[in-house]
């Protein structure tokens, strides 16, 4: 989990130091395969002429007609897009945020208290072992079908990487840092917010990033079961109404959503943890 972040960080630092020209070339070097794949897909799909595999151009045109040809007052989104996109993204972010708050809070407590983690760790190990989709039937009974149940599924599914990483980060605060905090008599709040949280931040961010991609998965899973809106619902609905280009379009939307979320997260992480990346480079 940590390797992914540090590798991403190093990569960012490299392109930063080697200047923009080299960075642009690097992007081009990595990107050349994408148009090639798209062209191959297009040709293959036209050749095959199967209704299950529409060519990309058909998918994109269809996506435009379905969702992005709305009035300017709605940011060019059609009614169908407005009905399905925001609820999905909202539930995803809300679930992720709730899991973040609970995961970091509980993780810090468990990481800093041996007694507490002694009691709770075994329970967590069992709870963690349950695949989140298996709990959907339970959540349907417990909560109302719809947003509540979907939120519960997302929170339950994405909390583990955050929790486990936070516990790890909070547990391994450097001894000299902890000694320094004690010697200079830092209060509880100062210790939490100025020492433990920043010290654990690289680990916490690694967990949050993993959780964000998990949240996309669980959002879709939860929307495939008895939902009335959302991207997952849209995929299912398009499939059931034999609009296969629409189904593919919803999948493309999902991948764009996942990409944008991950890129935004990296953008924020790079700023918040810039001290970490730069400190590691100097030592």
């Amino acid at each position: 989990m940590t390797t992914t972040t540090s590798r991403a960080g190093r990569h960012a630092a490299e392109s930063g130091t080697e200047g923009g020209r080299r960075g642009l070339l690097g992007v081009l070097e990595q990107m050349w395969l994408i148009p090639l794949v798209l062209v191959a897909w297009e040709l293959g799909a036209r050749q095959g002429d199967s209704i299950y595999f529409p060519p990309p151009t058909t998918i994109v045109t269809h996506m435009y007609e379905l969702w992005f040809s709305g009035p300017a007052s709605h940011l060019f989104l059609t009614e169908e897009a407005v009905d399905n996109l925001p609820p999905s993204v909202g539930r995803l972010l809300a679930g992720w945020a709730i899991a973040g708050v609970i995961g970091v809070g509980l993780g810090i407590a468990l990481g800093r208290s041996k007694a507490l983690s002694g009691y709770i760790d075994p329970i967590l190990e069992f709870a963690r072992a349950i695949p989140p989709p298996a709990l959907i039937p339970l959540f349907i009974v417990l909560f109302k079908l719809g947003t509540q149940m979907q939120l519960a599924t997302i929170v339950y599914g994405v909390i583990w990487p955050i929790l486990v990483n936070t516990v790890d980060g909070a547990r391994h605060v450097d001894r000299v840092h902890a000694d320094t905090a004690q010697v200079f008599g830092l209060g509880r709040r100062q210790r939490l917010f100025r020492i433990i949280l920043p010290a654990a931040a690289p680990k916490i961010f690694a967990g949050l990033r993993l959780s964000l991609s998990l949240a996309v998965i669980l959002m879709v899973v939860s929307e495939l079961v008895g939902a009335t809106d959302g991207l997952g619902y849209l995929i299912l609905f398009k499939q059931q109404s034999f609009d296969l280009a629409g189904m593919w379009g919803a999948m493309v939307l999902l991948s764009i959503l996942g990409f944008v979320l991950n890129a935004s997260f990296l953008f924020v992480e790079r700023r918040v943890l810039s001290w970490h990346r730069r400190a590691q480079q100097t030592t």
Binding site: V176, D179, Q182, V183, G185, R194, I195, H276
Partner: peptide, 20 residues
């Protein structure tokens, strides 16, 4: 820990907080 005591540790790189 006495209230008005300060310590300078050998390991300065671990005693100073790198995020501040």
């Amino acid at each position: 820990t006495p209230g008005d005591l300060a310590v300078v540790f050998q390991d300065y790189s671990r005693s100073l907080f790198p995020w501040m």
